[in-house]
């Protein structure tokens, strides 16, 4: 087990490093004047020259990258001409358009993203697994067909469509809820939850569908296995077979998918945040892309990648723990 753990985490580290190379190469070796792009369209030639100097664009590529990497692990210094600006590790660079450190920018956006992600996650796991369980329990009846249909509809609806419809119905037509506007948890917990209700629900409705399908299919698969036949032949009731044996079989895949999803959520639920006006990491990315704020884009892509890789590793490890045969085979 320890061996597996170490190997998996080592693999994750390698992937992260490789990811940083790919991302760095993709963005800083882009066509056109990188310094000009990073600085923004309104920069004077002098400012552009300064940015070029700070990004070490004059040096060979590997030196540029080395400095970039150094920033992440040890922090780096930027000379501003008049003085020196220190950027603490993990330094993901500076936004010249906003005159801010990227790490700082991301950190201030993270609470909103986390609020959205965690709330929606709890909701969709309950909804998804519950739906899957119910449709297996009621298999062969109308309930199963209805639930399967709803699940398919859920799979087919993009989150922004659900969100838009919910806003129209609840905020505009029925006027039951305020138009969403993010309020930090620390400021007013009640307002926080009230404003996040619609985003949570829309995200959960859409994200629950794959869980419902997976729960259902892996439970059905387990129910067809020999060991379920054994317990049926020993007088265990259908409730026991479904609730104890089949559900246990679905646990591993659900945990694995859950870890992956929550990981990529921390990279920002780009669409949901944009639609509901939540000042999180995802919306920051959209803004940065629209403004072509290169350092912020790079930083965000890396952070998202970090969360995804981490989640991948955690998912593997959790699944291995849930199903120890994986490690053995």
């Amino acid at each position: 087990m320890t061996r597996f753990l170490l190997r998996r985490l080592g693999g994750a580290l390698f992937v992260l490093l490789a990811l940083s190379v790919v991302v760095y190469a993709a963005f800083y070796v882009a066509p056109g004047n990188v310094a000009q792009i990073a600085c923004g369209p309104r920069c004077s030639p002098a400012q552009v020259a300064q940015v070029s100097d700070q990004l070490r664009l004059g040096d060979p590529l590997y030196v540029q990258y080395a400095h970039f990497l150094q920033g992440i692990f040890a922090g780096r210094d930027y000379s501003t001409g008049t003085g020196i600006l220190h950027c603490q590790a993990p330094c993901l660079g500076r936004s010249y358009q906003d005159d801010q450190q990227v790490t700082q920018m991301i950190l201030t956006k993270l609470p909103a993203t986390a609020s959205l992600a965690i709330g929606a996650f709890v909701l969709w796991i309950l909804l998804g697994v519950g739906t899957g369980l119910l449709s297996v329990w009621r298999r062969g009846r109308a309930t199963e067909r209805i639930l399967t249909g709803l699940t398919l509809a859920g799979m087919a609806t993009p989150v922004f469509v659900v969100g838009l419809l919910l806003i129209i119905v609840f905020c505009s037509a029925l006027q039951l809820l305020p138009f969403p506007d993010y309020v930090p948890l620390t400021e007013n917990p009640e307002q926080w939850a009230w404003n996040l209700l619609l985003p949570w629900v829309s995200l959960a409705l859409v994200s629950a569908a794959p869980y419902a399908r997976m729960t259902r299919s892996s439970m059905l698969e387990t129910l067809a296995e020999d060991h379920v036949r054994t317990f049926r032949a020993y007088g265990v009731s259908e409730r026991g077979l479904v609730g104890r044996h089949a559900l246990r079989g679905a646990l591993g895949p659900v945990i694995a998918l859950g870890a992956l999803d929550i990981g990529s959520m921390f990279g920002g639920a780009v669409l949901t945040e944009s639609l509901f006006n939540i000042p999180g990491v995802g919306r920051e990315l959209v803004d940065a892309v629209k403004n072509v704020d290169l350092p912020v884009v790079v930083g965000l892509v890396l952070v998202t990648g970090f969360f995804v890789v981490l989640a991948n590793a955690v998912a593997d490890i959790l699944q291995a723990m849930a199903d120890r045969r994986v490690v053995l085979s």
């Binding site: 020999d226 060991h227 379920v228 036949r229 054994t230 032949a233 020993y234 044996h245």
Partner: peptide
């Protein structure tokens, strides 16, 4: 009571 053919798949692995 019944005893089945394949003893591995006849027991719940979990």
């Amino acid at each position: 009571a019944m005893v089945f053919q394949d003893p591995l798949s006849s027991l719940d692995p979990y």
